[in-house]
Amino acid sequence: MTTEDVLLTADTDGVRTLTLNRPKSYNSLTVELKERLLDALRAAAAEDTVRAVVLTGAGKAFCAGQDLKEHVGLLQAGDSAPLRTVAEHYNPIVRTIVRMPKPVISAVNGSAAGAGAAFAYASDLRIAATSASFLMAFANVGLGPDSGASWTLQRLVGYGRAAELMLLARTVDAEEALRIGLVGEVVPEGELAERAQQVAARLAAGPTAAYARIKDVLTTAAESTLDEALAAEDAAQAALGATADHSEAVEAFVAKRPPNFTGA
């Protein structure tokens, strides 16, 4: 494991775990942390040895969103950086998570608020500890959502529920998050890291080329017509049918043995 102050990076069995590491500030997002996270996500996307990614937080919180102390301090100092952070940091981070050609799992420990919650929404899978909670509090400070939450949240829970959570700025605990489909699984606090690694390791051992195309066609279908979605599926199947992983899966099925996927 290498420590980069505000971000921890660990690699195990093809899984790269990125841990937001400002526990005393509930992993709130400073400029430094946002830049480190964006660089780390882009590196994970580009490295063939990384086959799945886990995003989590150190301490008692997943991520409290924007570090408001830094935000206010920069504005008071006449620095315009806070006004550019959506375009320069949050939007690229979410694009990188959504377009990552490999699965991304958010292991949500404690509070996930604002942009922090949005990062979890953008992930492919969300596993929550019993202590987890989600909050979209933008309306409380006279702002609208950012970090892609307007796009991701309603695709998880529907327009009506997303509007309720954003307009009323209501906290969702782990039990409700599971019930409304915001997360896929809730586990005891002490089992979160292990469970996230188990799921990520399973994905890392799978047909990652297929996972990349599955993510791609799902994103395409979310913003296209039926005919466009069918065309994207057709193109994906044609490409994947020529992969070594598909051939291996067919041979393994005939031989009645587990397939050995390489991502090729």
Rank of each mutant, 00 (worst) to 15 (best):
V217C: 02
T2F: 08
V254Q: 07
T30C: 01
A112Q: 06
T12Y: 00
V217T: 09
S123N: 07
A255G: 04
L18G: 10
A139M: 07
V6F: 06
S133P: 06
P82K: 12
V141K: 10
A177V: 10
L168K: 15
R257S: 03
L29R: 05
H246F: 15
T30H: 01
S133Y: 01
A205Q: 10
E194V: 14
L37T: 10
I97A: 03
L203F: 13
M136V: 13
G59T: 05
V254A: 09
A61E: 05
T243Q: 06
A169K: 12
I180N: 01
F261Y: 15
G14C: 10
L153A: 04
L167T: 15
L38Y: 00
A58R: 06
L68I: 15
D227W: 02
P259L: 09
K256V: 14
E223P: 01
S123F: 04
R161F: 05
G144R: 14
A204F: 04
A44D: 10
A232F: 02
A200H: 02
V72W: 15
P101R: 14
V86E: 11
A255L: 11
R51K: 14
A46M: 08
L33F: 11
V108G: 01
G59Q: 07
L74G: 06
L33V: 12
H89L: 13
A242M: 08
D11E: 14
R202H: 08
T262C: 00
V72Y: 11
